[in-house]
Design a protein around this nucleic acid. Structure first.
Lengths: 178, 178
DNA sequence: GCTTTCCCGACTGTTTTCGTCGAGTATAGC
DNA sequence: GCTATACTCGACGAAAACAGTCGGGAAAGC
């Protein structure tokens, strides 16, 4: 279980998606603009999310992504392991005796305890609960036009490929200096 | 809050230290051998842990490291932030309006919620509780000779610098394929 | 046929991780 | 004082992961 900005991007994007999928599929271009994440990077992340069946895609105009199952049935742990590709294979597999010195892979056991706690915790946080948090905080979801047709009239801001010139969130663990 | 193998090494080493500091200071060489972590790397990690006052050092023969305070008063969060050096500075600082589009940095708020939960959780897990887990699992702590003197007699395995030829735990998130 | 949108693989630059090395300082015991 | 032990510090380096780019392609709707 690793926890980096990569996982954060994925969680952020998933919340954005969950907040807005009522009006049909949400495009990556829209998420990219709202959350300031590079479109190409989102494509990579959603490729993984789709292969893990956390999202479904529909192509063509009016297409985009929707959640693969209910937000209450998607956990933060699901999202993070999807994009992090746990290369796993902790070598000794967990059962072999890493070194035949009788203490059989204490290092492994050692970390496993904390890791279990971590996974259990992240598995207890559902996407729905994060969405609720956002709604409670008064996040305004532009209840978009149900039109879906009648496009190509307004001066749409063209969603080009490169839209995050110098990403603001490039690095940094997250605030909390305390 | 980042969570990588670096933090894992630090936590692992701290548990090892907590398990054995009864018989006086524990040397990095000993931890290195038991946990299969490069000695030089441990030196770096413990330099940070010491500067954060999580451990204390005593030099010279018979020296080593001891915990800076009781194991029950050290949390996993303490250890991880010590070695991870939270570069912080999430750019927009958390108060500015990242982009003047009214939704004032939703991305930021979004992740902050989960991050708070993470930190709170890791802050609730004490080093002592992890040590207890280990003892409960029947980890045998070689209740080492209280001698401390009378060294240089037995054919001691020389603790040279290079002792982890090809580290087994080089990468990999941790097991849990499920 | 055109546009929209997802899909995929390859590529690149920076940061982090992990580890090495060399030199130095404090302490204890002879 | 000498020597061995052990921490202390800084620099360096290879390899991986991260974050992002790019170009082309394929399905679907108009």
């Amino acid at each position: 279980m690793r926890l980096t900005t990569k996982g954060r991007f994925a969680v952020t994007a998933m919340i954005d998606l969950a907040l807005r999928q009522n009006n049909g599929p949400v495009t990556l271009a829209a998420i990219s603009q709202r959350q300031q994440i590079s479109l190409s990077y989102l494509e990579q992340l959603f490729g993984k999310l789709r292969r893990h069946e956390l999202v479904e895609s529909t192509r063509g105009p009016g297409g985009g992504y929707t959640l693969g199952r209910k937000a209450s049935e998607i956990t933060v742990a699901d999202i993070i392991v999807s994009v992090d590709e746990p290369i796993d294979a902790t070598q000794c597999g967990g059962k072999e005796n890493c070194l035949g010195e009788g203490h059989r892979c204490m290092t492994h056991e050692l970390w496993a305890a904390l890791n279990t706690k971590m996974v259990d915790f992240l598995d207890s946080v559902s996407l729905q609960s994060l969405v609720d948090d956002q709604l409670a905080k008064g996040v305004v979801v532009e209840n978009a036009p149900m039109i879906k047709r009648a496009i190509s009239s307004a001066p749409v801001v063209k969603p080009i490929r490169v839209n995050a010139p110098n990403s603001v969130f490039a690095l940094g663990g997250v605030a909390f200096s305390k």
